[in-house]
Amino acid sequence: MIGAYEISLLTTIGIAVTFALSLNLVTGFCGQISLGHAAFLGTGAYVAAMSVVAGAPFAVGLIAGGLVAAAVGAVVGLASLRVRHDFLAITTMGVGFLFVGFTRQQDWLGGEMGIAGIPEAPFGKVGLMVVALGVAAATAAFSVYLKRTWMGFAFDAIAADEDTARTVAIDVSRYKLAAFALGTGIAGLAGGLYAFNIRFIAPDSFGFVESVTVLAMVVIGGIGSVLWVTVAAAALAVLPQWFQAVDDYKLLLYGVLLFTVMRLSPGGLAGLVARLVRGVRQ
């Protein structure tokens, strides 16, 4: 049997993997860089927490969190129609700061203190773990499926070269909005699970550091690679729990890893493995 510690660890992994794959949809598949993805985790977490505290069933809170995050994400996606590349990176970063700056000042959302005492899920800790892992697995399966659909192909084209995609009659705007809505909606789901797992949320749980952490997961895994982003997300979620030293210097590690990966292997683990395999074959 697994103990309480393993249950909480697996739940955390499930949430981290879901969150990382959701950013991978936007940044990896569709090439739209986002430096404020934690805002959508936060939106989902707040909506889910508020609904459950108000007495709604957990499933309703979870789904509402995902839907509201997707709606907000689609609005932010409108920004990606106006600005590109570096401008978009800064705009999304701004969205992240706006989220924190806004929630901090809202008394009805608990202000700086956040929301404490979120009730425990009726299906228990094991149930929550199963749900978290299930959502993560479903997200991974959906990502793999998406890659093989027409929409995945359009995302690919947009990521590679937006203008060329437009000239071959791909409706760039529609697909970008779809990528944002999907990615942020899934992030919102992860947020709801996060709220039910930690049972306490505050604005600072969804700040720039969290946005960078999830970006680190995607970048270290290899932008766009479902398998390796999953591996990297699980590893980065587990390492701080296993090694106290890693926890103390977590940000230093993320920073150094981000830098090193970009410097040596911009394709991340996926790129590294692909190169190794090619090397062995030759």
């Binding site: 860089i33 230093l252 993320y254 920073g255 981000l258 830098f259």
Partner: peptide, 21 residues
């Protein structure tokens, strides 16, 4: 010579590492 997002992400990594240092 790499695509622009490479330098951006490297720069974020460098900044976070500096803050921690």
């Amino acid at each position: 010579r790499r695509p622009p997002y490479v330098a951006l992400i490297a720069s974020i990594g460098l900044f976070i590492a500096m803050e921690e240092l």
